[in-house]
Design a protein around this nucleic acid. Structure first.
Length: 503
RNA sequence: CGGGGUAUAGCGCAGUCCGGCUAGCGCACCUGCUUUGGGAGCAGGGGGUCGUAGGUUCGAAUCCUACUACCCCGACCA
């Protein structure tokens, strides 16, 4: 339990550094991202600088996902940043979906300005065909696949790329929506429709597993309504998470593209039966938006809370000492513990900076979300103990130094589980089944998921969105599917769907 | 793209209404001493073309005009 004194210090700290979560959620989020050194706004509008600490988390996400992709048979490749404009118009709904937010390269040269100062675009260097900065790579990839695929023997083609993409957004927020972002995009080609559907569903399960196991983020699996579908997809699968402010966030999508892109880019293969057929396609992606989801689902008014599996530093050791002699003795012990922990593959930082006091270090590492802190002082040396503090519960306890490596390992596992359970409890507590329109209106105001019957029409979906700002987040593909009557129109409904206001 | 707000040291702000001497304050930074179990104290010190461009004036952070950037709230999207 926290003493009163510490509570007061926290209040002082909060007032100084961080907006309170309950007062202004979005300001709290922005403060957290910038002050915990995850990212900052850049000189370029809408684009962010991901700072080393934030990038370290992203690298851990990448590593885990990349392994999962490889384990399911995918290979990495890289396709160009630029896409010829003409490629874009080949798939009608795809263009329509992205046209409004594309950056376009028109020239390839600058020259010195007429007044001899600065540089201007050289009008003589106009590109014959303008290039689009990729908002996603389906078109260039399918144009390439055409040459790679001749026979059923070339299938399935299972490829992923890690890349940056650009979508010219009007309003941006660090990680959640930036003009340029980092992501991975998988693009696969299959001989049969069933195989492609299976692939899209498999990758959805991979995403869900990653979110739950690594990010400690419980997610719902489902499909999007036609309205919310990816431009060019036949079916869009998604994982959807609930943030602490009661808004939903799409954390990953996987698309069954049918033969839309194969037809647009003329990608055919010769089947076993010696017939020319169009291939079946999928694409799937998660982005640096996951960083935003991570921050918003676990963190509190004391700063970031990171799940141990993704934390760049899992344990920080802080020495407490009065003089050089003590520091020496404590350092020896601390380094010993560090080594023990590292033998268990725990990522440890020994914070032996002499320029900061222990209290400062406590607060700083807490703010940065380090799951476990071990403090060692003269008293501990005498007693053969250490003080261990958990970031998730803020609990402190004094433990025997012997066997601390095993205890730390157990605690990290517990923290990982606890964060997931807390997030799951929160979601359960904020998911409501409603039967009537008035219930719907009342509940959607309070935030969270509202589970209600929908008649399946785009008109109803649109009206609900206009009246409440809530959208259909997903149509569940798991659990019961009972019929009922639409909460808005009263018409028959095949099953309940999840509504929420969303990021 | 609409509404609102902001722009003064690395960060947060005061000063602007009502123009006037050398532009302040807190945090951070540097030096020294004392400190170190939850953001240490004291003393000294460094750091500014007051967002940009133009105008008014003897004189502009302050008044006028235009522009730019950022933040918040909407519409659009992952």
């Amino acid at each position: 339990m926290l003493s009163e004194k510490i509570q007061i210090l926290y209040q002082k700290f909060m007032a100084k550094e961080l907006s309170a979560r309950e007062d202004n959620y979005s300001q709290w989020y922005t403060d957290l991202v910038t002050k915990a050194d995850l990212a900052e706004n850049s000189a370029v509008r809408g684009c962010m600088v991901i700072k080393p600490y934030g990038y370290a988390i992203w690298e851990r996400m990448q590593a885990a996902l990349d392994k999962m992709f490889k384990d399911t048979g995918h290979q990495n490749a890289y396709f160009p940043l630029f896409i010829p404009k003409s490629f874009f118009s080949k798939e009608a709904s795809h263009v329509e979906g992205f046209a409004k937010e594309c950056a376009v390269v028109t020239h390839y040269r600058l020259k010195t300005g007429p007044d001899g100062k600065g540089v201007v675009v050289d009008e003589d260097a106009r590109l014959e065909e303008e290039l689009i900065v990729r908002p996603t790579s389906e078109t260039i990839i399918w144009d390439t696949y055409r040459n790679w695929i001749q026979s059923y023997r070339d299938l399935p083609l299972l490829i992923n790329q890690w890349a940056n993409v650009v979508r010219w957004e009007m309003r941006t927020r660090l990680f959640l929506r930036t003009a340029e972002f980092l992501w991975q995009e998988g693009h696969t080609a299959h001989a049969t429709m069933q195989e492609a559907v299976d692939e899209a569903e498999q990758m959805l399960r991979v995403y869900a597993e990653f979110a739950e196991e690594w990010m400690a983020l419980p997610v719902l699996k489902g499909v999007k309504s036609p309205n919310e579908r990816f431009a060019g997809a036949v079916e869009t699968y998604c994982i959807e998470a609930l943030m602490q402010d009661g808004k939903a966030l799409q954390a990953g999508t996987s698309h069954f593209l049918g033969q839309n892109f194969a037809k647009a880019f003329d990608v055919k293969f010769l089947s076993k039966e010696n017939k020319q057929e169009y291939v079946w396609a999928t694409s799937w992606g998660v982005s640096t938006r996951l960083m935003g989801a991570l921050v918003m689902s676990h963190s509190d008014n004391n700063g970031l809370v990171l799940p141990p599996k993704l934390a760049p530093i899992q344990v920080v050791i802080v020495p407490i000492y009065r003089n050089d002699e003590q520091m020496k003795a404590i350092s020896a012990k601390a380094l010993e513990i560090k080594k023990m922990l590292e033998l268990r593959n725990i990522r440890v930082k020994y914070d032996d900076r002499d320029t900061q006091k222990p209290g400062f270090k406590f607060t700083e590492w807490e703010f940065k979300g380090v799951p476990l802190r071990i403090a060692i002082g003269p008293r501990d040396l005498e007693n053969g103990t250490v003080e261990v503090a958990r970031r998730d519960t803020l609990e402190k306890e004094v433990l025997q130094m012997t066997g601390i490596d095993q205890k730390a390992e157990n605690l990290l596992e517990q923290i990982q589980k606890n964060l997931f359970q807390k997030a799951l409890d929160f979601r359960n507590l904020n998911t409501f089944k409603v039967e009537t329109w008035s219930e719907f209106l009342e509940q959607i105001e309070k935030g969270g998921f509202v589970v209600a019957h929908w008649d399946g029409t785009a008109e109803t979906e649109q009206k609900i969105k206009e009246e409440t700002k809530a959208t259909i987040r997903l149509i569940p593909i798991e659990g019961e599917q009972k019929e009922g009557t639409c909460v808005y129109s009263g018409k028959p409904s095949k099953q309940r769907v999840y509504f929420a206001r969303a990021y």
